[in-house]
C-alpha cells in the first residue's frame, strides 16, 4: 500500500463524503429557521425552576445524568494520562533549571494570578445566572495557577501546587456530584433530581441543585486540569532518560546507579 495509493484512496473517500455532506446540507432546515421544538421546552422548564441561564439548567438539571457521563469521561482521560506519563523505573527526574525572567513579567504574574483566580471563581459561582459555569470556571482557575510557571518558573509552581491535593480535589468533585445525585434519590424522587427549593429568580440561591452541581464540576475540572498539566510539565521539564527505542535501554541502565 504505497503512499500514492493511499492518497488516491483518501481522495476518493473524501469526495464521497463531501458529496454526501452536501446533499445532507441541502436537506437540513434553512439556517436561522424558527422551528426549535426542543429549545422552547427547555426554556419553559428552566424558567419553571427559576434558573436564569437555561444552558446551565439543561446541563445540570434536565440532562444532569449526561453531564455525569461527561464528567466521568474527563476523569477517565486524566486517569489515563496520569498512568501513561508516570515516571518509569528507567527514568530519573532532576530539579528544573531556574530561568531568569523580566521583573515586570514576574510582578504582572503575581498580580494577575489572584485576579484570574477570582474571575474563575466568579464564573463558577454565577454559572446558573450569567454565561459560564463549572466547566469554564474550572479551566480558568487551573490556568490561573499555571501563571506561576508561565511567567516565573516551574520551581515556583511546584511549591504552590502539591499534585496529590489536586488529585484529591478532582476525585472529591466527582464524588460530590454523585452524592448530590443520590441525595435526590434519598429525598424520595429520582437520582439527580432537583429537590432543593428553587429560590427567587436571578439570585445566587436560585435553581435548587444547579449551583451546587456547578460548584462540584468546577472543583473537579480545576483539579483534573492541574493534575493533567502537572504530568505534562514533569515529563517535559524534569524526567530524563528512559527507553529511546531498543538500543538506548542498555546504556541508560548502565549509567543509572
Amino acid at each position: 500500500m504505497s503512499r500514492k495509493a493511499r492518497l488516491w484512496l483518501l481522495a476518493v473517500g473524501g469526495i464521497g463524503v463531501a458529496v454526501l455532506l452536501a446533499c445532507a446540507a441541502f436537506d437540513l432546515p434553512g439556517f436561522g429557521g424558527t422551528s426549535h421544538p426542543y429549545g422552547e421546552r427547555a426554556v419553559r422548564s428552566a424558567l419553571a425552576r427559576h434558573t436564569a441561564n437555561v444552558i446551565s439548567s439543561v446541563n445540570f438539571d434536565q440532562r444532569a445524568f449526561d453531564t455525569l457521563g461527561e464528567e466521568s469521561i474527563l476523569f477517565a482521560a486524566v486517569l489515563g494520562t496520569v498512568v501513561l506519563l508516570r515516571e518509569t523505573r528507567d527514568e530519573h527526574s532532576e530539579p528544573p533549571e531556574t530561568v531568569r525572567v523580566d521583573p515586570h513579567v514576574r510582578r504582572y504574574a503575581l498580580i494577575a494570578l489572584p485576579v484570574t483566580l477570582l474571575i474563575g471563581l466568579y464564573i463558577i459561582a454565577h454559572g446558573q445566572l450569567s454565561p459560564g459555569g463549572g466547566f469554564q470556571g474550572g479551566v480558568i482557575v487551573a490556568t490561573a495557577l499555571h501563571l506561576l510557571y508561565i511567567a516565573i518558573d516551574y520551581k515556583a509552581l511546584e511549591r504552590i501546587r502539591p499534585a496529590a491535593a489536586y488529585a484529591i480535589a478532582d476525585a472529591a468533585g466527582e464524588a460530590a456530584y454523585v452524592l448530590l445525585g443520590t441525595a435526590g434519590l434519598l429525598a424520595g424522587s429520582v437520582f439527580l433530581a432537583n429537590f432543593l427549593p428553587y429560590g427567587t429568580f436571578n439570585t445566587l440561591s436560585s435553581g435548587g441543585t444547579v449551583p451546587l452541581l456547578n460548584a462540584a464540576i468546577g472543583v473537579e475540572v480545576a483539579g483534573a486540569t492541574v493534575v493533567l498539566l502537572a504530568r505534562f510539565l514533569d515529563q517535559a521539564l524534569e524526567i530524563e532518560g528512559g527507553g529511546t527505542g531498543g538500543t538506548g535501554r542498555q546504556d541508560e541502565e548502565a549509567n543509572r546507579s
Partner: peptide
C-alpha cells in the same frame, strides 16, 4: 456566549 467562554478558556 457559554460555548464561546468555554472555547476561550
Amino acid at each position: 456566549p457559554d460555548v464561546a467562554l468555554s472555547q476561550l478558556a
